[in-house]
Write a protein that binds this DNA or RNA. Structure first.
Lengths: 158, 158
DNA sequence: ATCCTTGCAAAGCATTTGCAGTCAC
DNA sequence: GTGACTGCAAATGCTTTGCAAGGAT
């Protein structure tokens, strides 16, 4: 089936992307970095460093937590990942680097991606009052409750 | 002048607000909590716990950092302050609890308040794709450069 | 062969906690 | 007087760092 072939192509592509980005900044391709990058690209769960560690350990048994931290920082430095920080203080990593927004569930702490971006006109309106300020980025996060955590919804919310 | 009288009234009012909020949740009014609250209300600088500590220490010489942390948490619990977290991982506190947004300068790290809020229609549009999710809050932060830090502006950027 | 990376363990830093004395009520 | 609050210091948890061995180019 096409499925397997496509999967293989994607894997290859992911490695190529990583090799290129690392090479461009004079850094080396390693199995550890590849595993971290592959996992980040494969999930939308915006994992913490520790979650990455636990998962990647199944692919690269001997990897250490320190290496995961270093790899994540390397990826962020290459522009292949983004670092998010939440109110609880935990850092999370996102394999998507395009400008997008998030919804976070106050119940289960899950973070999901939003397909739409804030309208440029809206940004311009908000920015208008910060005079002289040159805006380069917008970060937006919706908070609330996902269907299975909603305390106001009918079902028993765990 | 009116200035002095108004200032005194405000101070009194701030304490009354604090007393009421604390009483409502069975907690006690203390000089330390009052000093922390007063400082938060008086500034727009969104200070870290340590900055609060350094400043409040001039009013309450013997106060400890642990007490500042506890007081800040108490205020957040009473709804008299909000806790913010930035990408660098540092927690900051905001004496304003109404729903408002921020601009952060990538040069000097200063955080300022934005007078406008994201339009409800825009939130609805963004939310539309997160189906089943009940949105309760919106957090937005603009990032960029303030006039004195803008590297693309004419003057020497420090 | 060079020097970047890894894994380990120790160090760092912000925040939290335990506890005895103190204070608000 | 009672129970909450403070200050101190120790503890915690996440993240970073130093270093010798190993690996990519």
């Amino acid at each position: 089936m096409e499925g397997r072939k496509q999967m293989h192509e994607e894997t290859t592509d992911v490695e190529a992307v990583l090799r290129e980005a690392l090479g461009a900044s004079g850094q080396r391709f390693t199995e550890q970095r590849a595993a971290v990058f592959r996992f980040l690209r494969s999930t939308e769960s915006h994992p913490t460093a520790d979650e990455v560690f636990l998962r990647v350990r199944t692919d690269v048994p001997g990897i250490s937590l320190a290496t995961v931290y270093k790899s994540l920082e390397t990826l962020v430095g290459c522009g292949l990942a983004a670092k998010l920080t939440y109110v609880d203080g935990s850092a999370r990593y996102d394999g998507r680097t395009d400008d997008h927004h998030h919804v976070r569930c106050l119940g289960c702490s899950r973070v999901m991606d939003l397909p739409h971006r804030v309208d440029d006109g809206e940004v311009a309106r908000l920015q208008a009052s910060a005079d002289g300020f040159r805006v380069t980025g917008v970060r937006l996060e919706l908070t609330g409750y996902c269907p299975s955590c909603d305390p106001e919804a009918a079902g028993a919310p765990a």
